[in-house]
Nucleic acid binder design. Structure first.
Lengths: 200, 200
DNA sequence: TGTTTTTTTGAACGTCGTTCAGGTTTTGCG
DNA sequence: CGCAAAACCTGAACGACGTTCAAAAAAACA
């Protein structure tokens, strides 16, 4: 078959990402192959390579979408609180909830590995950093006496902790028996860390 | 070629794991293939399957060895402290140090994914849980008034935090600029969490 | 209409994990 | 020692993977 012009390049990209999203959501990143995505949108594998550099590019765009969704959720969560401790707790719970509800899509963000030597593109890196930034605002309110570097460090520490709880849960590495759900772990981290960070 | 009997099955397994270790240490898990391991030990790919169920089995045995090394290191670290806060700090720093020094071997433990439906075998699961257990002993000393479940939760929380810091660093997801090294993040987590956990 | 341009294909390449019929060497036995 | 039986190891083969690109086909243009 030759030229069809049924869809523009942008349309094909959108369709491919949509199909990829469905595959990853239902079967995980391991089930995502170029042939499957192509088949799902009624095009041949070669066509995908007119739209994406390679599968890694497709996956990174998929992950960018997932991170955008997560960002929107967390921004709402942060605004729902009163701006201090409640916001941070809401952020933590929002992150845990997202990682549980969209486990495979969220997992794909951290499961995917670039070939050695390749760098995470800035437009994806930015989306990750933007997330950690959400913690800084309420942290600043909560501990006005701390300088920017200390707040940044605390935000990274809290973020690492919540993230670690989620990822250890996803990989099944955390003890299931009496070990605490990721939600309990996240709450514990936030409560005790904050109590230590700003003496309250 | 036919029967050789140059090495016993156990010897072949040891040689294969040694070769796999070198490959992963130098080039990462992505460079590990059955053909490469087989070639490195002077056997054909088929022979590997007489010794391991499949590549996943080889990788999990490799990871078990890595976790054993980590456990030995952390046990020494915990004993070096006075048993309380210093031990926990030493554990955190030991974990971070290991993850940095043996980045690719350590990363392989968490990068490797079983095919869907497969479970992590108990002999590997045990090695992971044993690690978190190392945190509980000094935690108990530090907060004698807490019951076992609370100590367990705190150990999991601290472990998740340290682990999260390391894995975000490895994947390059943490801001490099003024974000704090994994060591700083780990110290911050331990110090502030412990101050909140046992009011000191 | 014929010609050019654009778009899409799908066979092909090299790689992967994995299998297994068959060849080769050792072993056991008379 | 000779010869069958057993044990061991090979390597070609299979299907699937990411990726490429000559060529076919359709659209656009003349």
């Amino acid at each position: 078959m030759g030229r069809r012009s049924d869809h523009s390049r942008e349309q094909i990209a959108r369709m491919a990402l949509e199909a990829a999203r469905r595959i990853v959501r239902e079967e995980g990143l391991g089930a995502l192959t170029a042939r499957r995505v192509a088949g799902a949108i009624g095009y041949s594998p070669g066509t995908l390579y007119l739209v994406f550099n390679n599968l890694d590019g497709l996956i990174m765009q998929l992950n960018a979408g997932t991170l955008d969704e997560l960002f929107a959720l967390l921004r709402r969560a942060a605004e729902s609180g009163d701006g201090g401790r409640a916001s941070i707790r809401a952020l933590a719970r929002g992150y845990v909830g997202f990682s549980l509800e969209h486990a495979r899509l969220w997992g794909a963000v951290y499961e995917h590995r670039l070939p050695v030597g390749e760098q995470v593109p800035p437009w994806l890196q930015t989306r990750i950093e933007r997330l950690v930034g959400l913690v800084e605002t309420p942290l600043r309110e909560l501990a006005p006496e701390r300088d920017a570097d200390q707040v940044r460090l605390a935000a990274n520490a809290l973020w690492s902790g919540i993230h670690g709880a989620c990822i250890l849960h996803l990989s099944g590495s955390l003890e299931k028996t009496r070990g605490g759900s990721p939600l309990e772990i996240a709450d514990s981290l936030v409560d005790h860390y904050l109590r230590g960070f700003c003496g309250t």
